[in-house]
Amino acid sequence: MDVLNVEYMLGLVPVLLRYLPLTLQLAGIGMVLALFLACLFAVVRVLRIPVLNQLTIVFISFFRGTPLLVQLFLFYYGLPQLFSALTVIDGVTATVMGLTMHFSAYMAESIRAAIVGVDRSQTEAALSIGMTNGQLMRRIVLPQATRVALPTLMNYFIDMIKATSLAFTLGVTELMGATQKEAAGSFLYFEAFIVAAIMYWIVVELLSKLQNYLETRLNKAYNR
């Protein structure tokens, strides 16, 4: 393999592009669910809601303390072994479940830190004018915490996109699985993986652009 087989690479682009939507779908749905779960966990932790707080601590500890691949195997292969009805969990569902749980554990901690970081006197000011705890969270604390947490959350999202490549182990052919199979057929590993790498890269670059845009918007209130 002295020369890069450009013709092969170009031919591979439309083939691999067919699998990109699934990769984005896995990460996109995973991210939305993980964010939702992480916000719940963070609020439970901040308000120290009894029982739930302890459960959340154990949950976070487990899903941060074990590899994502192990979790995926547990959901996909382990659960059906215990309850045969759970064979209905297909690879896509198991992947989304795994990504959601795994990343929500990480994100909960950074959201919690961001919430705690919001100036306590603003909380008192909001309560002093008669806001409920819910209004306080929605209108004052979470918008400010979002700004602080955004860069970290974006990093997790990018991590999650790359982590979708584990889905092929559960029989889900996404971008990485398709690339591995094509490479096995052609033995042009370098060419195949460089095409896939560039696709991931472009997606992540676009996300970084989005992040810059959001950060500028959210920072509007803090420029002197």
Binding site: Y76, F168, L170, V172
Partner: peptide, 10 residues
């Protein structure tokens, strides 16, 4: 299709 390590699990 799945990575070989996943096949027996499936």
């Amino acid at each position: 299709t799945a990575n070989f390590s996943g096949l027996f699990g499936m």
